[in-house]
Design a protein around this nucleic acid. Structure first.
Lengths: 230, 230
DNA sequence: ACCTGAACACCGTTCAAGT
DNA sequence: ACCTGAACACCGTTCAAGT
């Protein structure tokens, strides 16, 4: 719905190389424009044409900077990953893991609609490796060998991603933000006829993203700590 | 690429209610056809027109059974979830959780390309609640109160979903199946200039989905078991 | 009750032509 | 070097018209 045309001039119909001094396209500008579209209308609303519209440029021009729509979405995921503010390690294993996990969540929730992209896409780029390096370093300094470190890294990342994915895909449906929706949800759950679902309906209907996330992280960290000695 | 036209007769151009005895459309048939498209060409290839083509029917006819494309994908996710073969509980907490998690993985991997759908979509339907009930029952019988059960359920599901998501989205890129790709990946990782990534390159490049999944489950179960007494 | 023709407003992408 | 016109082969969806 929201449409922000931000071309510096009313871009007259024109062909060929743009006059110098004119707005210059760039990978960064394109990623930013895509995030604008995503924040406003969700990932499903992303199209080459829609992004071009935001920039006041023909959709086809994007192909000079980005490898098609798929490449565009990859670029967005990478930009978000690269933007994670990794905390300096303190030497305290549990705390350091927790702080990385929280930084990850902060970045993911900065663009909730885009978060699933980061969580779902294959992150093999250099940008995606920085958080990996950070976790491996912490584990290695805690005395884990590479093989065990990788296992723990993967398990830790899976827990974090799973928790975040639920949080962003559940969206604002859950949450104490809307007690009316929670009540409605309780009713639905009670009507399921499933004994244990009914018994836990109140707890199932309520959902505090941050608290739930901390619980999941602490759960994982607890087990990592239990293995330090072994 | 693969196209399986499975209309019983060469469907002459026709209008209005179909002659009786002719192929009847149904929600199940549509879901099945959609899975065919997904298995062959991935979720991105799903379109109302493509699914209609498989059934030898106009795309618009699908609207009589399914609420647009989004509703179609929901229906697929629900069908997959409902198809999970939940094992009967034995009373052994750890084993019961493990068996549910393995059944979940089996179902998800039956249609690897569709798995992300199940993992990502909001699963609030009755069909989606059966696994929830199963886990809650196991936890409740192990002595956890509803609040703690829900926390553990969510953490457990997050771990399982995160692990599976990586497995299906990593796809056959990793895995000992293709040692050549693994070697290439090792080279890329070593060239990253990141100390700990380089040191663990071999372990990072190798990936055995089943083993990794078991590791993640056992990790989660271990912590659940540690809390039984408390 | 269930299906389709016509129609609309969109897509992604290629490629040659422009400056 | 970078942009667009023209063009192609697609989309999802509505709605009225058919049987």
């Amino acid at each position: 719905m929201t449409r922000s045309a931000q071309s510096p001039e009313p871009t007259a119909a024109r062909r060929g190389r743009p006059p110098k001094g004119a707005f210059r396209l760039s990978r960064e500008a394109i990623v930013e424009a895509t995030l604008e579209v995503i924040d406003a209308d969700g990932v499903a609303a992303v199209s080459m044409r829609a992004v071009g519209r935001v920039l006041g440029v023909d959709a086809k021009s994007l192909y000079n900077y980005v490898d098609g729509k798929d490449g565009l979405l990859d670029a967005v995921a990478e930009a978000l990953l690269g933007g994670i503010d990794l905390p300096a390690p303190t030497g305290d294993l549990g705390n350091d893991l927790r702080r990385i996990a929280l930084a990850f969540r902060t970045q993911a929730l900065a663009h909730p609609e885009a978060a699933a992209l980061v969580l779902t896409r294959q992150l093999s780029s250099f940008e995606g490796l920085a958080p990996v390096e950070a976790v491996l370093r912490i584990l290695s300094e805690a005395g884990f060998d590479p093989a065990e470190s990788v296992h723990l890294l993967r398990t830790f990342v899976a827990a974090v991603v799973g928790a975040l994915l639920r949080e962003v895909s559940a969206g604002p449906t859950y949450g104490a933000t809307n007690p009316e929706l929670v009540a409605e949800r309780v009713r639905v759950l009670r009507g399921s006829g499933l004994a244990n679902v009914t018994a836990a309906a109140e707890e199932l209907a309520r959902f505090d993203g941050q608290a739930e996330y901390r619980y999941a992280i602490d759960f994982a960290i607890e087990t990592v700590l239990a293995r330090v000695s072994s």
